[in-house]
């Protein structure tokens, strides 16, 4: 059911995009050249599997965070009220508030797990955005257009995962090193993890996945039954954050 609905929405979105792009090109007097979509091949649904145990074995490792922050020019703002985060650590019991584990050892409940945008199948942020500055791509990525965002922060109110950050001020002064291959953001727009769509487009895996020394983050195509993601999910029990809200998160946590 959810897959057929996704297919339908995807098709509707594609045709709308095709129409929109055609009119832009016509206006410019261009002939539309045949273009090969780089990653959104039919039957692709990007997803991630997190193995918290492997991650914990690495102790205070923050390699994935650092790789992501550099790749996307994520600022390091000291005031926690204004922080911008794409992938970060949260205590297990806060990331999974509905999984009551009263008798689990205290140490376990407070163990950090990696959290990021869940790239939901039925994303509330996409539903509420008044300008389609955030939308669902047909490969499952919840994408953002920072040129179009008006900074109303409705998506932040709608996201049940706290995955979205707002640029309360100009982020540039808070960047130690600037990656010239990726833009920064301007003040007044919302941002979040994009599953490294810019890297997927050139056939690379997300920066956090490549940076993890323990292979605790596995990225792949959920629609490929023989793929690594599906094999992992077949082999081990996995949970998703607040899946009971009907959002259909695409980040799985192995138990």
């Amino acid at each position: 059911m959810s897959i057929s609905r996704r297919g339908f929405l995807g098709a509707a979105g594609l045709s709308a995009l095709a129409l929109a792009s055609k009119s832009t090109l016509d206006a410019l007097g261009f002939e539309a050249a045949p273009q090969e979509p780089t990653s959104a091949a039919a039957g692709t649904r990007w997803a991630m599997v997190v193995d918290p145990r492997k991650c914990l074995d690495q102790g205070d490792c923050t390699k994935c965070i650092e790789a992501c922050d550099y790749a996307h020019n994520v600022p390091h703002i000291t005031n926690p009220a204004h922080e911008v985060k794409w992938i970060w650590k949260e205590p297990f019991e806060d990331a999974f508030p509905f999984l009551e584990v009263d008798y689990a050892p205290e140490a376990f409940r407070e163990q950090p797990v990696m959290v990021l945008c869940n790239h939901c199948d039925n994303a509330p942020c996409v539903r509420v955005c008044p300008t389609q500055a955030t939308w669902k791509r047909d490969d499952g990525i919840v994408m953002m257009d920072w040129h179009r965002c008006i900074g109303c922060r409705y998506c932040m109110a709608a996201c049940p995962y706290g995955s979205r950050s707002f640029n309360w001020g100009d982020p540039r002064p808070a960047m130690a090193s600037l990656n010239p291959d990726y833009p920064t953001r301007t003040k007044g727009v919302v941002e979040k993890c994009t599953f490294c769509e810019e890297r997927l487009a050139v056939g690379q895996r997300p920066a956090c996945v490549d940076a993890c020394p323990a292979r605790a983050l596995v990225f792949g195509n959920l629609d490929d039954p023989e793929g690594e993601v599906r094999s992992l999910l077949r082999a081990r029990f996995a949970v998703r954050r607040k899946a009971e809200l009907g959002t259909g998160p695409a980040v799985y946590y192995l138990v």
Binding site: R127, V128, P130, T131, Q132, C149, C152, R153, V189
Partner: peptide, 29 residues
């Protein structure tokens, strides 16, 4: 009040340029 709450107030007309029927903010406007 809405205008002063916008992060990018000069882009606020994007709501009309890209009417989004599934957004309650569009209907509110």
């Amino acid at each position: 009040f809405i205008l002063v709450d916008m992060g990018q107030p000069m882009r606020v007309l994007n709501v009309m340029l890209h009417p989004t029927l599934h957004s309650m903010m569009f209907w509110d406007m």
